[in-house]
């Protein structure tokens, strides 16, 4: 796995793990039905507290990104199974707002930002297609 601890980040460790799982899914590095390491394996591998990993997994499961099958392990869920959470949309909105402000102060236009967003999408999808 490609998990790592970013000591320069302000985000709590379990959020970092959630973020990294999501990122890997988006990049297509993790595909539906792929098995994730167990709490024990991942915590030992990263040398972090097992509770942190289970907290992250619980949150990921709540968001429908992963599913736990008793006795078999934890798997990436099918995209269709992902729950739509209005709370998350709100968070994305906040995130975008920040990006818009940053964009303004950096001296770029609205059009340039939208183009940038397109580019990021293409980049991600491009990766997915390769797999």
């Amino acid at each position: 796995m490609f998990f790592h601890i970013d000591t320069k980040s302000n985000a709590p460790l379990y959020e970092q793990i959630i973020q990294q799982v999501k990122e890997m899914c988006a990049k297509g590095l993790l595909i539906p039905d792929e098995r994730l390491p167990s709490v024990r394996e991942l915590s030992s591998h990263m040398v972090i507290n097992p509770n942190t990993v289970s907290k992250a997994y619980q949150e990921l499961e709540r968001q429908g990104i992963i599913v736990t099958v008793r006795g078999r392990g934890t798997f990436i869920s099918k995209e269709t199974d992902r729950t739509i959470d209005p709370g998350r949309l709100k968070a994305i909105r906040e995130f975008l707002k920040e990006a818009v402000i940053e964009n303004y102060y950096a001296g770029y236009s609205k059009k340039e930002l939208i183009e940038l967003l397109e580019e990021v999408y293409e980049e991600m999808e491009g990766k997915t297609d390769e797999n």
Binding site: R40, S43, V47, N49, P50
Partner: peptide, 14 residues
Amino acid sequence: KKQVLQILIEEVAA
């Protein structure tokens, strides 16, 4: 050191 810490974590996890 890493080995020691890993066995420690596994113990708590298991």
